[in-house]
Nucleic acid binder design. Sequence first.
DNA 1: CAGTATCCTCGAGGATACTG
DNA 2: CAGTATCCTCGAGGATACTG
Lengths: 236, 236
Amino acid sequence: MADSAPVSTYPGQYCPLAKAAEMLGDRWTLLIVRDLLTGAHRFSEIARGLPGISPTLLAQRLRTLERHGIVERRRTGDARPEYWLTVVGQDLTPAVLGLGSWAARHFGHEPSPDEMSSSVLILWIERFLRAELLPSGREVARFDFTAPRRESRWLLIDRGEATACDEDPGRAPSLLVTTDLRTLHNVFAGRVSMRAALRDGSLRLDGEPEMVRAFPRWFGVSPFAEDTRVALRRGA
Amino acid sequence: MADSAPVSTYPGQYCPLAKAAEMLGDRWTLLIVRDLLTGAHRFSEIARGLPGISPTLLAQRLRTLERHGIVERRRTGDARPEYWLTVVGQDLTPAVLGLGSWAARHFGHEPSPDEMSSSVLILWIERFLRAELLPSGREVARFDFTAPRRESRWLLIDRGEATACDEDPGRAPSLLVTTDLRTLHNVFAGRVSMRAALRDGSLRLDGEPEMVRAFPRWFGVSPFAEDTRVALRRGA
DNA sequence: CAGTATCCTCGAGGATACTG
DNA sequence: CAGTATCCTCGAGGATACTG
């Protein structure tokens, strides 16, 4: 008696685009794919890059992606579970880049304060830096934000690997980056060059000379930075 | 006193992909863009291709797209309003094709009956047919579906233009296409060739010889048909 | 850390009728 | 045709606390 017909999101149309929208259109889903594409694999890592998502919801989204064959949950021994894109999921790369590029080209305005967080930004810096140019020893870089809130974030460097950190790791930093959130975000997004930010003093580097010299080299920009730059040139 | 801060969908992250997801992620939005890309411009035309959407919701989505500068509402004189993609909206083409292509390559299974509707299919046939190969006179093609429901749809042809129609237009058809919904959908989607469907009898053509001969030529397939074909070849 | 369980709210959107 | 107005439902997902 009960009509248990599974109501599809878009009834009456089997179209590949509708299928894609159905699988990726839920809130957060596309950003989860983005984070998996850029190197986040553990539950807490993904959650950290998505301020505002609840554990329940993230778990549910991951399960749905797994059911669709886009994500694979790996559990090796009693190690922590990891989430990896399947071949199908990896094949989303061009489409995801296309969407982001489109937005960067046309909606690359400066973010408002509530659209940025130092915690997420430091995570992105970790994800996109050029690891092969990182100092080889153990180092700590501290980022002191002067605005919109005075707060600090850290990047722990150890044998060519970097880890973003929201809490003081205790060790004395060998590099100090003093700036405001807007500036560092603009540099990351490709809206302002590191060189220009250093020149006008909106970004300042202090600490061991070797670290100061290396930072602009290993600091990486967003994958959409070039799109943003092109859009700015055209707009100006 | 009231905290009227506009809560953004993805707080704390200004990322082009998040921006794109925010603007296009709502249910129906991507399909509205798809329909505008493929030639629907009037309110009722768009609504017809989206079974299940309410007028209220479609109006709201169009307004939001307009606010974002993706869609432009045109009102010429006292003619009916039309909706057109702006340059920004048109620039979504590669990303939209990329998403659909991805889905076609990996999720090109045969649709279940509730994922198809003869009314939407006939609309798509109208949108993707090769108008330059259409008969030049006034003709009526009737599509008789034998399954899953016995029903008919019409395609009115007039001076190189075709109009899909759910009701009997009254004029006698000069072409009769007899098939089931699954078969015609498979042909449209690229899963089965018109030739094969004609050969095994799952699709039959009757009527004026000239019309019968021309139909397979002006019948167009989905933009994702090639992706589906490639996926099938690989899977088989 | 990697989630699950529970409760509860609120707003998206469905249904329907109506209007220029 | 191209929407708007109104009402109402229901389920997505937020908040919180808890568990292996």
